[in-house]
């Protein structure tokens, strides 16, 4: 079969550029540069690789503010066929529960899909909860943390990368898989295609109402977890004692510092 693949991806601020505003206790993302969530790029590459082999289509879905549009265009330039941005003020403040619901409704609205490919986790929230949540809303099997995906007839076969071990699972499609970061080399976009996508408005925008979702099912209102407080991670005070002198002297001082840790 020619699989109809959906890639669910998002944009995140570069982690090292986000700071905490100590007075308001909110995150200051204003200055932060945004990037496509790194594992989501690997997820997209898996999808495009499957399309190279089997044909079919790759559809992007993403829930986020309008600024995500540029990044979706970049992904269209890499070879995706269509992109849907789920954007609505009502979606703001969503935890993984309404996020996975909103994504699931959008995927159901597409009119048929075989495989949903996500990243393993997002760099800002780092929960990894959206892929299994999405699979539950869709009522389909899930294979998480995979580094290899194959499609054979209507079956998906994927290898879970579990630290020093691994397991290979197979399931009838439709199914959801999540891909670990660094598992492949994402291809470069074709910039003519990126430009065409931007010019001709390839990215479609859907709102909560278009998904048939009520305001208490999405965003902050639809979330179960709430941020009680934001605190600066307690800094660990280190001694910062620099060993001085020649190489010889440094080695002697270092050996002395390490001797208490030696066991006869």
């Amino acid at each position: 079969m020619t699989p109809r693949i959906v890639v669910s991806l998002k944009v995140v601020p570069k982690p090292e550029e986000v700071s905490l505003n100590p007075e308001t206790r909110t995150l200051d993302r204003a200055g932060a540069e945004n990037v496509l969530n790194p594992p989501d790029k690997n997820a997209l590459e898996v999808a495009l690789g499957l399309k190279d082999t089997h044909g079919g289509t790759v559809t992007l879905v993403s829930m986020g503010p309008p600024l995500f549009k540029d990044y979706l265009e970049l992904c269209l330039g890499m070879g995706a066929d269509q992109a849907i941005l789920l954007s609505d003020r009502l979606f703001a403040g969503a935890d993984t529960y309404p996020t996975s619901l909103t994504l699931a409704r959008a995927i159901q609205k597409l009119g048929g899909y075989d495989l949903v490919i996500c990243g393993e986790e997002s760099a800002d929230a780092s929960t990894g909860q959206v892929p299994p949540g999405l699979a539950e809303w869709l009522g389909v099997p899930q294979i998480t943390f995979v580094d290899e995906v194959r499609v054979q007839g209507d079956t998906v076969i994927a290898r879970r990368a579990l630290g020093s071990s691994y397991e290979v699972l197979e399931a009838e499609m439709p199914a959801v898989v999540s891909v670990v970061v660094g598992s492949n080399e994402p291809r470069f976009p074709d910039f003519d295609r990126v430009e065409a996508a931007a010019k001709s408005g390839w990215v479609k925008v859907w709102t909560a109402a278009e998904l048939g979702l009520r305001d208490d099912e999405v965003g902050l209102k639809g979330s179960y977890t709430i941020v009680h407080d934001l605190v600066e991670g307690e800094p660990v005070e280190r001694k910062r004692h620099f060993l001085q002198g020649s190489l010889e002297e440094k080695i002697r001082a270092l050996a002395e510092a390490l001797e208490p840790f030696l066991r006869p």
Partner: peptide, 8 residues
């Protein structure tokens, strides 16, 4: 660098 305290 930042800890979020979360409750349900």
């Amino acid at each position: 660098s930042i800890l979020a305290i979360i409750k349900s």
